[in-house]
Simulated assay, not measured.
Amino acid sequence: MTQNSLQELKEIWEQWDNGIKQLFYSNYGDLSFLLDIKVGKRLFRALAQYWNPAYSCFTFGKVDLVPTVEEYMTLLRCLRTQIDKAYSRAGNVPTFLKKLMCITGMSEQWVVARIKQKGDSNYFPQGIGACG
Rank of each mutant, 00 (worst) to 15 (best):
K62I: 11
Q22E: 13
F44N: 15
K21G: 08
Q49F: 14
Y28P: 00
L47D: 05
E70F: 10
L65M: 11
F24R: 02
V39F: 06
G19L: 15
L35Y: 01
K41Y: 03
K41V: 07
N18E: 13
L31H: 02
G40E: 13
F33V: 13
T59K: 10
A54W: 02
L47N: 05
S56Y: 06
V69W: 05
W16D: 09
T59W: 01
N18M: 06
Y55W: 05
P67V: 00
V66P: 10
A48C: 10
A48N: 09
E70H: 11
I20L: 14
P53R: 04
V63H: 12
D36L: 02
Y50N: 07
L34T: 05
V69S: 09
F44W: 09
K62G: 11
Y25W: 11
D17C: 08
Q22W: 06
V69D: 10
A48Y: 01
N27Q: 15
G61I: 03
Q22H: 04
S56T: 12
A48G: 04
Y28H: 09
Q15D: 14
A54I: 05
I37D: 03
N18F: 01
K21D: 07
C57Y: 02
S32G: 10
D17N: 14
F24N: 06
G40V: 00
A46S: 14
L35I: 01
V39N: 06
G19S: 14
D17F: 02
G29R: 01
D30P: 05
K62M: 11
T68K: 08
S26A: 13
I37H: 03
S56C: 11
